[in-house]
């Protein structure tokens, strides 16, 4: 049986992990290589690095962080942020990323998704969508949630999958950092529309929120960040609560599949 995934997201800026709310007020929470490895040991199913650096110089720093991470991390690593063209994808994969997530650049040039999928395979192209409620639609935003577009999130998610994205990373801007739960209607609307896996993102505060993302949001995976970095809970604790509720996540902890 395919297990619902718990994915840990680290916002990376100039080689350090940072955390803010609604993409603002960033503070330093640690070294990405160390944190990623610690989350694997805790039972995280995947790691996402979202590069929030503004400068071009930070690109080399990010590649170096990805390279060092891949030396010690043995679960999938997705890297997003600042991917502007298909030519940016290759170096990140070569450095050790398994999947690349694209957001603003795909809105500007949807061909990027098709070209990326054709060249590297759908399984490594993740379409990242930031959406907020706007009248009677969920509107897509780009550039870290600051720039509104004319795109409806559900329709855009469908187009991304049609063009070859192998996964949708769906962030609710309204819920991001609020810790009051994922945006379930948005998550369900997108999950029900597309035939690729959907990762719910934005709003995780408690284990119940992850459970609801799987059951009511029909998500394949749930993204968690702040509550872990702040030490409010652990991946192991989230997973044992989910297991107790009958959500068959991959068992966490060293007992599973261990040597000896």
């Amino acid at each position: 049986m395919l297990r619902p995934r718990v994915i840990v997201c680290l916002d990376v800026k100039d080689g350090r992990v940072v955390k803010g709310t609604q993409f603002k007020n960033l503070r330093d929470v640690g070294d990405p290589v160390e944190l990623a490895q610690r989350y694997e040991q805790e039972g995280a199913d995947e790691i996402v690095y979202l590069d929030v650096s503004a400068s071009k110089e930070a690109r080399g720093t990010l590649l170096d962080v990805v390279r060092r991470t891949a030396e010690t991390l043995f679960i999938p690593l997705t890297v997003g942020g600042g991917v502007r063209s298909a030519d940016d994808i290759g170096p990140l994969l070569r450095a050790g990323a398994d999947k690349i997530s694209v957001n603003s650049a795909a809105v500007r040039d949807p061909e990027l998704l098709s070209v990326g999928a054709e060249r590297f395979g759908s399984q490594c192209v993740v379409a990242s969508i930031d959406a907020a409620r706007n009248g009677d639609m969920w509107r897509c935003y780009t550039h870290g949630g600051s720039t509104p577009t004319d795109l409806d999130a559900v329709a855009w998610a469908y187009e991304c999958a049609e063009r070859g994205a192998g996964e949708i990373l769906l962030t609710s801007i309204d819920q991001d950092g609020a810790r009051t739960g994922y945006n379930l209607p948005l998550t369900a609307a997108v999950s029900d529309r597309v035939s690729v896996p959907v990762i719910a993102s934005g709003g995780a505060g408690r284990a119940e929120h992850l459970r609801d993302a799987f059951t009511e949001g029909h998500a394949s995976a749930a993204l968690v960040a702040g509550i872990l970095h702040d030490g409010l809970t652990t991946v192991g604790e989230l997973k044992s609560r989910l297991t107790a509720w009958g959500i068959d996540v991959r068992p966490s902890g060293p007992a599973e599949g261990h040597e000896r």
């Binding site: 395919l2 297990r3 199913d45 399984q123 192998g166 896996p197 394949s220 995976a221």
Partner: peptide, 11 residues
């Protein structure tokens, strides 16, 4: 299958 790729951890 209805959801492809088959992505994630499976037994």
């Amino acid at each position: 299958a209805s959801v492809v790729p088959h992505m994630g951890w499976n037994d």
